[in-house]
Design a protein around this nucleic acid. Structure first.
Lengths: 201, 201
DNA sequence: GTTAAGTTGGACCAATTGGTTCAAAATGCA
DNA sequence: TGCATTTTGAACCAATTGGTCCAACTTAAC
C-alpha cells in the first residue's frame, strides 16, 4: 500500500464531535461538518459513512474521552471524594471555552429519547452503564463504611445520574456555571447531612 | 366581520406543541406539523406565522399549561408538601401516555442553549423564572420554620431546578419512570435528613 | 341573493438537504 | 521514473426544506 492519509482522522472526528455537540444531530448539516473538519464531503463520506454513522462515531468518541474522564474519578477511595471529583471534573469541563456547553450524551438522550428508532437503545444503554457504575461505587462505599448499611444504593445511584444530567442541562441553558456550582454545593451538603454520609461538614 | 374560523386554534396549537415536544425544533418539518394539526400549510402559516413563531407559541403554551401546573404545587403551606407535590405533578405527567416523554422546556434549553441567537434569551429567562419561584418558596419555608435559618436558599433553589431538569432527562432517555422514582426517593430522603428539613421521616 | 370578510388547499418557489460518483491529483514505494 | 494506492473537489442527484401566493371556497350579515 502506498498513498498516504492526508488528514488526521481523529482530529476530524473531534471537530465533527464539537458541532454535533453544539448543534445536535438534526441541527447539523454537511456544510457544518465540512467547515468543522476541513474535509470535503466525499472524504467525510468514505471515512465515516453517512451522517448518522458519523454522529455515532462522534458520540462514542465523546463517551470515551469525556465520559471516562469523569467516571475515572469514581475510583477515589473515599466516597465523598469520588462524588465531588466526579462532579468537579464535569464542572471543570463546563468551564472550558474550547468546548461546547453542556454534555453531548445528555443532548443525545434529549434529542432522541428512548423511543427513537435507531438511537433509542443506544441512549438507554448509555444511561444504564453510567447508572451501573454509580451503583457499584455506592455499594463499595457501603462496605467501606462510607455509607450507612441501610442506604438505598439504587436510589442514590439514580439520584446521582439525574443530578449530572440536570447540571448539564442548566449549564447549557444558562451558559455559565454559577447555578451549577450552587446546585452542587446544596447537593453535597445534603449528601453529607447525617445519616447519609458519615463524614462531617 | 363574517367568515368564521373553521378550526380550533388552541387545538391546533396543542397538536403542534406535541410534535415539537417529541421531535424538537429542527427535527420537526412542516409536513409533521400539518399531520399533527390537520391544517394546511397556509392555514398554519397565517394563523401562527413561520416555523419559529409557531414553535415559540407552542413553548409558551407548554409553559402556561404544564409549567404552571407544577409551579402551582409550590403553594402548599408545608415546604415538604410543596416540593413533593411539585415533583409528583411532574412525574404524573411523565406517565401520561398521551403526551411525549420528557419536558419540552428542558428540551428547548438543551437544543438551543444560552448562546443561541434567537432563543438563548428565552431559554435563560425560563430557567430564571423557575429558579426565582423556587427561591421564593425556600425563603418562605425559612420564615415558616420549615427550613433552618442558616439554609442557603439560593443553593437549594438551584439544586431543585437542576433536579427537575435531570429527572426530565432520564425519563426521556429511559422512556419510563422507574429511575425517576428512585432518584426522587433518594432526594426526598436527603432533603429530610436533619438539619435541612425539620420534619421527620 | 348579494356581498364582504375570512379560510383553505394546492401550486409554486428558490434554497438546501443528505447522499453518490468519478476523474484528476497527490502520495510514497520500488 | 513509474506504479499502485488513496484522497479530493466538483459535479450531480432526487428529495425535502421553509416559505409565499392566490384563486376558489365558505361563511354570515345585510
Amino acid at each position: 500500500m502506498t498513498g498516504t492519509k492526508q488528514f488526521d482522522i481523529s482530529q476530524a472526528l473531534d471537530g465533527a464531535m464539537r458541532i454535533f455537540w453544539e448543534k445536535g444531530f438534526e441541527g447539523t448539516s454537511y456544510g457544518d461538518l465540512i467547515a468543522a473538519t476541513g474535509l470535503s464531503k466525499s472524504s467525510l463520506y468514505n471515512a465515516f459513512g453517512g451522517k448518522q454513522d458519523l454522529y455515532n462515531s462522534c458520540l462514542n468518541h465523546y463517551t470515551k474521552v469525556y465520559g471516562s474522564e469523569a467516571m475515572a474519578q469514581l475510583e477515589a477511595p473515599v466516597f465523598e471524594d469520588a462524588v465531588t471529583g466526579f462532579l468537579d471534573t464535569m464542572i471543570e469541563r463546563f468551564q472550558r471555552d474550547d468546548l461546547p456547553d453542556g454534555c453531548m450524551a445528555t443532548a443525545a438522550a434529549l434529542e432522541f429519547g428512548a423511543g427513537h428508532k435507531s438511537q433509542g437503545e443506544r441512549v438507554k444503554g448509555q444511561l444504564q452503564r453510567a447508572e451501573a457504575a454509580l451503583l457499584e461505587r455506592c455499594k463499595k462505599a457501603m462496605t467501606d463504611g462510607d455509607l450507612p448499611l441501610e442506604t438505598d444504593c439504587e436510589a442514590v445511584a439514580s439520584f446521582l445520574l439525574a443530578m449530572t444530567r440536570g447540571l448539564a442541562a442548566i449549564q447549557r441553558g444558562y451558559g455559565n456555571v454559577e447555578a451549577v456550582l450552587r446546585a452542587k454545593h446544596a447537593m453535597i451538603e445534603m449528601l453529607k447531612a447525617p445519616p447519609l454520609l458519615k463524614s462531617d461538614s
